[in-house]
């Protein structure tokens, strides 16, 4: 496959909040596809052992093929021969290339390079929540960081869909990230999850270059945002100036439906244009913090 060398360094965005159920996977699955409308190539990485992002974007049959060929995120962390539940081999060699393991969801007509790619998730990633000694995991972290570095050559943006815990995986994602997209639902726990994440990022010395934070309000069902919530968030000296003006709108098109996979806005359905307009607006607002003017 032809490699597309980028002059500008790619952005690596982790979608993360320490609170679960704030829409991380929904946002990863549906929002970033709209970067294509702004001529940006995107790689989505399913970094959650539950691999809901993968389930949202590809069929079970397609996934099985990737899993059987060992083309999942787990192959980035360790080669197939190293698989043991409580140990990680020290000398594992280089990671695979993103272009060799990705599922090409969209491509540019002009040169067939990937416009939207997905590195599929893997339940075997659960092992990284079971290993007690973080030193044992260092080779896997090194492989992941090398993988991201080489992937930056081929895409404009890499989105890492994280799981909501202060685990080894979160540490890997944060170390690789230039930006953090933090979804918040208009409820107090979700907002307090912001603070926990901020403390986690600040308190880990190995994250030398702290990722730039961007807060996105996910309005949730009903699309109504409590004015008290919004005024508290927007007035906060740390999170207010980095909260995007437009909220991510809830739509039934975004819900997981049996037998339906793919980006919500590629479906022919009522109200899809409202959703597209919302996503395009959020992407436009993201361009500033991402340094794309």
């Amino acid at each position: 496959m032809d490699s597309k060398i980028k002059k500008e360094s790619a952005r690596v965005v982790s979608v993360l909040n320490m609170k679960g159920g704030v829409g991380k996977t929904t946002i990863s699955a549906h929002l970033f596809r709209h970067m294509l409308n702004f001529s940006k190539s995107v790689l989505l990485i399913d970094f959650d052992p539950q691999f809901n992002l993968t389930q949202a974007l590809m069929t079970q049959r397609e996934y099985k093929k990737f899993r059987d060929e060992d083309k999942t995120i787990f192959s980035v962390m360790e080669p197939p021969s190293a698989s043991s539940l409580f140990s990680v081999t020290k000398n594992m060699g280089p990671p695979p290339l993103a272009v060799d393991i990705e599922k090409q969801l969209r491509w540019w007509v002009r040169d067939k390079t990937t416009a939207l790619g997905l590195v599929t998730g893997d339940f075997r990633m659960t092992k990284y929540t079971l290993v007690d000694n973080p030193k044992i995991l260092l080779p896997a972290q090194k492989r992941f960081l090398e993988f991201i570095e080489q992937a930056k050559e081929h895409y404009d943006l890499i989105c890492i869909d994280c799981n909501p815990s202060s685990s080894f995986m979160t540490l890997c994602a944060l170390t690789a990230s230039t930006h953090l997209l933090i979804p918040v639902r208009p409820d107090r726990y979700s907002m307090l999850g912001l603070e926990m994440l901020d403390e986690f990022v600040a308190g880990v010395p190995s994250i030398v270059s702290k990722p730039k934070q961007i807060v996105l309000i996910n309005s949730g069902p009903g699309n109504s945002i409590d004015p008290g919530f919004e005024s508290t968030l927007r007035a906060n000296s740390k999170f207010g100036p980095v909260t995007l003006p437009t909220a991510f709108r809830f739509s039934s098109l975004l819900g997981a439906k049996e037998g339906k996979v793919g980006s919500a806005t590629d479906k022919k359905a009522p109200y899809v244009n409202t959703l597209k307009a919302n996503f395009d607006q959020i992407i436009t607002e993201l361009k500033g913090p991402l340094g794309w003017h």
């Binding site: 294509l36 090409q104 969801l105 969209r106 491509w107 540019w108 007509v109 002009r110 416009a115 939207l116 003006p245 437009t246 909220a247 709108r249 793919g262 806005t265 590629d266 479906k267 022919k268 899809v272 244009n273 409202t274 597209k276 307009a277 919302n278 395009d280 607006q281």
Partner: peptide
Amino acid sequence: QWGGVGSVSDNYYRKKQAPSQDVKV
């Protein structure tokens, strides 16, 4: 064909000219 995006399913969708007004703050 001029430089857009292709997909496996090639799902073309129709774009309406005017987006909903309430999505932009």
